[in-house]
Computed example of a mutant assay.
Amino acid sequence: MKKNSKSHNDSSQELTEMTSKELFIKYQDGKDIHIRNELVRRYLYIVEILSKKYINKGIEYEDIYQVASLGLIYAIERFDPSKGFEFSSFATPTIIGEIKKHFRDKGWSIRVPRRIQELSKKINTCKNELHQKLQRTPTISDIAEYLNCSEEQIMEAMEGSQVYTPKSLDLTYDNDGEDKEMKFMDLIGEVDKNFDNIENKDFLDKVINKLNEVEKKVLRDRFFNNRTQMHVAEELQVSQMTVSRMEKKIIEKFQKEYKKTTV
């Protein structure tokens, strides 16, 4: 056991003493995982530098770092030292590509069509260009003309970009000089439950008016007064089975009318 441990340590020491070019050549020959690990260790600084450029962009740094590390491994796998390129120059666009791909696929809090995502990026780029060219904030019309799009497409993309980073409900705003700050959650409207109650009441009244007097009595006694089928049957002088069938028929009428309202 000690002999194997010593052999492993000697091998690790040998790898650390080799140049990066030698390691890449050796890795191409046998794809030794230990060599790849040594290369990853040497070039992790690139991952750290590039990952920090995307801090506070809507995705956790740890996630970006993991994606960038994966990009580094892809670069190591594809790098050919015989072509004379510096590995850092080869790896950088590969890592950035993986990070941007991750942002494109995961960065939007609500999934929007790819065309909107792509147009949103073009808008952000052209805003800066137009601002320098026009010496003022570009209008939607300016952007639409510059990108050869309609104003409706530009507005759709700009609205869609608002879901890229979700806003915290605890975000605070100044309340027109008042001492108390206002939270974002206070500005969000709520659905008035009374609207649903009114709609439900109108629906019930409409269907009930279509029932005959016996059906209305069964409905009222069974579902509003909580009387048993047996009590209703005795009062109507019919069998309990008849009351059960009437209930089923009433429910079917409600279902039929409900389907009409949802079509």
Rank of each mutant, 00 (worst) to 15 (best):
F224W: 11
R115E: 15
N4F: 07
F79A: 07
I116F: 01
E199C: 08
E234D: 15
K106N: 15
N209W: 03
N226T: 08
Y258D: 01
F203N: 13
I76T: 04
K100H: 13
T16Y: 09
R111Y: 05
R222E: 02
F103A: 11
H34D: 14
F203T: 12
R41L: 06
L23W: 13
V163W: 06
I64K: 13
N128H: 11
S141T: 15
K101Y: 09
L44F: 12
M182N: 02
L50W: 00
L50A: 05
Q117V: 15
E199T: 10
N197G: 05
L171T: 09
T261N: 07
G107N: 10
Y74K: 15
D80H: 06
T228S: 15
D174I: 05
F24W: 02
Y164T: 10
I116E: 07
L204C: 12
K101G: 13
R104V: 09
N225P: 03
E129L: 06
E48V: 03
N148A: 10
N128T: 10
Q132F: 11
K52I: 02
M230L: 13
K253E: 06
H231I: 09
E235N: 14
T139L: 12
V67D: 01
L72A: 00
M18D: 05
M155E: 02
M185D: 07
E38R: 04
W108L: 05
A233G: 11
I143V: 08
S5K: 14
Y258H: 06
D29F: 07
K167C: 11
R78Q: 14
N200S: 10
K248F: 06
D176Y: 10
K183P: 00
D80V: 00
S141K: 15
K256F: 03
Y173A: 10
T228P: 07
L70F: 02
A233L: 08
